[in-house]
């Protein structure tokens, strides 16, 4: 596999952020925060009118994109910035670009975009391929 700086990685698409997944992640994270579970709480807090995805799930989407781009790779390091919320029903696209190649070590920029709203997570990652 030939990898070059500037290569775009195949996008990983989540057609619709799922409230059912948020229920599961509340258990995985042992985090009962109702903004992930109850629309009425989200409204009461003035945060909108849809349930809000747990932030780590958004990082997982970017990881999935990286691992699909380089099958069998291992993530050595990753940094993620949380720029905005993902809401139930959002159409998400994780994408990335190669920024450095050093032997079997590949560095990438990555991001998660919401259709119509722009980038909600951005980050960098180093992979061992």
């Amino acid at each position: 596999m030939s990898i070059s700086i500037g290569d775009a990685l195949p996008p990983f698409v989540i057609p619709s952020a799922s409230p059912d997944a948020m229920k599961h992640w509340a258990v995985f994270l042992a985090d009962p925060n109702p903004i992930h579970l109850d629309v009425e709480v989200v409204k009461a807090k003035g945060l909108g009118d849809k349930r809000i995805n747990q932030g780590p799930m958004n990082v997982a989407f970017m990881m999935n994109m990286l691992m699909a781009a380089f099958p069998g790779c291992r993530i050595e390091a990753m940094d993620s910035r949380f720029l905005d919320n993902v809401y139930e029903g959002d159409h998400l696209t994780a994408s990335g670009t190669v920024t450095a190649v050093d032997g079997n070590r590949v560095s990438c920029e990555c991001k998660l975009d919401v259709a119509g709203r722009g980038t909600v997570n951005s980050g960098t990652a180093t992979l061992i391929i």
């Binding site: 050595e76 990753m78 940094d79 993620s80």
Partner: peptide, 11 residues
């Protein structure tokens, strides 16, 4: 309402 700012990991 604490908000996540960033998260980094080194494996």
């Amino acid at each position: 309402g604490p908000m996540m700012g960033s998260s980094g990991v080194r494996f």
